[in-house]
Amino acid sequence: MLVIRPIEQRDLPTLKQIAIESGHGFTSLPVNDELLQNKINHSLASFASRAGGKGECLYFFVAEDSDTGEVLGTTALESAVGLSSPFYTYLLGKQVHSSRKLGIYNVVETLTLTNDYTGVSELCTLFLREPARHGMNGRLLSKSRFLFLAEFPELFDRRILAEMRGVSDDDGNSPFWSWLQEHFFSMDFPTVDYLTGIGQKGFIADLMPKYPIYVSLLSKQARAVIGKTHEKTRPALHLLEEEGFSWRGYVDIFDAGPSVECEVREIHTVRSSRQLRVHIGEPTQPGQYLISNGRFGDFRALLGDMAINEQQQAVISSKMASLLKVEDGDTVRVAEMKRND
């Protein structure tokens, strides 16, 4: 059984291996020991001292196999983006070129560089390792964050976004970036992806086009991938769409992958979750539930069988209670998972 918990210092070697496995385009996990250590430090500090409200905090979680102790996935929440360093996106919009005298009316698409998501919270760093890509593990890894959001809404913005990895090939070549590289940059996609991941974003403001880009001027290959998601990221996008996330025209400035967003209070799992008291026992006629212990620094979440008795208590097994670190009478947050979810 996979258990979601905050990242710890001992997870660094596995985190580095996950960064290698994640490949090109996964900006939030650069293969850089110092940066990965900084992420762990940031998360440890965020969990060690609970903020009074929304700050620049990182809540980084891992999925641990309860039988082997092996870390098989990562997922994270950033409370606010763009406060210390700019958070850039392109907005896909339209401009009208018309002449009534000549009877000409043309609508053209444009890409405009923005910082519109400044201060918005972000879902990030979702990665499930190959041996764990089966059953409901992907849903647990994605949806567990929503229980944390529901439990501690004061730590986050009213809106939350998720950047989806855009289209690139196995060698890290992005059709969208190839056009930008040809006209404005002299760096390949893996290089800019890495520089962004380690926080060296100054080149963006220095070299990125200052005016809106007419989409019609892009190469056919670049136009074709605007707002499109990498094939390995499509399952993650599908899960977010089920939760109520939608694309509103914002795309990544490097690979043109879509940024989807949702009001936190409108996320399906946030709305449907509820708090119940624990009763340890053998559940009769159980259903499948996403369950978290509701603690902050010692947060735990898992997916398992649970029943709700006549006293409106969450009936869970002693093994599950141990994994969640709860006892009789403690409070858990639960969200029912349909068997065909």
Results as ranks from 00 to 15, higher is better:
Pro13Trp: 04
Thr14Trp: 02
Leu15Met: 15
Gln17Val: 11
Ile18Tyr: 03
Ala19Arg: 10
Ala19Ser: 15
Ile20Arg: 14
Ile20Met: 14
Glu21Gln: 15
Glu21His: 02
Phe26Ser: 13
Ser28Thr: 11
Ser28Arg: 02
Pro30Glu: 14
Pro30Asp: 13
Pro30Trp: 03
Leu35Val: 11
Leu36Trp: 03
Lys39His: 01
His42Val: 02
His42Thr: 13
Ser43Pro: 10
Leu44Thr: 06
Ala45Tyr: 00
Gly53Val: 02
Lys54Ile: 14
Leu58Pro: 01
Leu58Ile: 06
Tyr59His: 07
Phe60Asp: 09
Glu64Tyr: 01
Glu64Cys: 05
Ser66Phe: 03
Gly69Trp: 04
Gly69Arg: 05
Leu72Lys: 06
Thr75Ser: 15
Ala76Asn: 08
Ala76His: 03
Ala76Gly: 03
Leu77Met: 12
Leu77Val: 09
Ser79Ala: 14
Val81Gln: 10
Gly82Leu: 08
Gly82Thr: 06
Leu83Met: 14
Ser85Ile: 12
Ser85Val: 07
Phe87Met: 11
Leu92Ser: 09
Gly93Thr: 08
Gln95Ser: 08
Arg100Phe: 04
Arg100Ile: 08
Tyr105Gln: 05
Asn106Arg: 10
Leu111Phe: 02
Asn115Asp: 09
Asn115Arg: 09
Thr118Ser: 13
Gly119Asp: 10
Val120Phe: 07
Val120His: 02
Val120Gln: 08
Glu122Gly: 00
Glu122Trp: 00
Leu123Cys: 09
Leu123Arg: 01
Thr125Arg: 09
Thr125Asn: 11
Leu126Gly: 05
Leu126Ile: 08
Leu128Thr: 09
Leu128Gln: 05
Pro131Val: 15
Pro131Asn: 13
Ala132Cys: 11
Arg133Asn: 13
His134Tyr: 09
Gly135Cys: 06
Met136Thr: 04
Gly138Val: 09
Gly138Ile: 10
Leu140Ile: 05
Leu140Asn: 06
Lys143Pro: 00
Arg145Glu: 10
Arg145Val: 06
Arg145Gly: 04
Phe146Gln: 04
Phe148Gln: 06
